[in-house]
Design a protein around this nucleic acid. Structure first.
Lengths: 155, 155
DNA sequence: ATTAATGCAAACGGTTTGCACTACT
DNA sequence: AGTAGTGCAAACCGTTTGCATTAAT
């Protein structure tokens, strides 16, 4: 599936050819899409749809939510994005560039970290063994208490 | 935490004494709460808030959503319920009786299974080791493809 | 008599949809 | 010209909130 076996510094996807990719599918290149791609290209990790709308507005104040969501759909079809649901239940988009990863969410301090493949190996392997279940790392979501918060007296 | 060390047939929580539990906290026993408890008492596993509202309506057609949600809050405070977020991002309530467990969701067929503590040990241990992170099993959510769907040619 | 809880209705927040209009190709 | 995409506004869906009223204690 992935072409590189290691998980070194994640390389960003090639947003520069989205235009051609769209064309190839008979789709179009518009200013609004350009704006979203610009935003996405400097994003790595996860963002909610609402966040993207907001960031697009910084670039183009006239940004319309529905347009953003529709374009996000298209980007997902192109394989440049994927989405899951965050700890608060909101849609959460992942910029594909970074190796597939899950999330670790501390319910005490609210911080979220990424879990890369090697760290998730234990989960992936055990689910495969016990159930024959193929874990989708990019949808893996684990909640609990981080080291810092576990240490504290729990204020 | 749990009084029984094994994970045999999960036994339902004692909903019969909720009334007293409420009283003990200076809270009240009302017909509406009775309805919800009735519904909850024959529920094991996970349900969404909306589902509970609907089931309550089957018992008492006059059920009001806000009342249900408010009572669910109370039940959670009493420790009889917990909640997390399902694959579709909706609130998902868990009837506590069953040992703490996570969820395994097949994105192909939509089925959801429960992951009990022994199965999750690999995850819990590895996160503890690598990050000092204390995984909250009841919020663990893993998505991917189940054995059956992985086997199929992928329709 | 207290005051927790209810019913109602409106608000909310993120996301989706219908449709006439615009603009990419 | 043809049709994908946009803007807009309204709908949606689950959930939350404010407030006057009701009812458990």
């Amino acid at each position: 599936m992935s072409s590189n076996g290691s998980f070194g510094p994640a390389r960003a996807a090639d947003w520069s050819n989205v235009r051609e990719r769209l064309r190839a599918s008979g789709l179009r290149w518009t200013p609004q899409r350009r704006t979203l791609i610009e935003v996405l290209s400097r994003t790595n990790g996860h963002v909610t749809g609402a966040e993207l709308v907001e960031r697009c507005r910084e670039v183009d104040p006239g940004t319309i939510p529905s347009t953003v969501y529709r374009t996000l759909d298209v980007m997902e079809d192109l394989g440049l994005l994927s989405h899951s649901h965050g700890a608060d239940g909101r849609e959460e988009f992942h910029v594909q560039p970074v190796a597939a990863h899950g999330h670790l969410h501390c319910t005490s301090c609210g911080t979220t970290w990424e879990i890369l493949a090697d760290e998730a190996a234990a989960v992936v392997d055990s689910m495969q063994r016990s159930r024959g279940f193929a874990v989708d790392l990019s949808h893996l979501s684990i909640a609990g208490q981080c080291a810092g918060c576990s240490a504290k007296p729990a204020g």
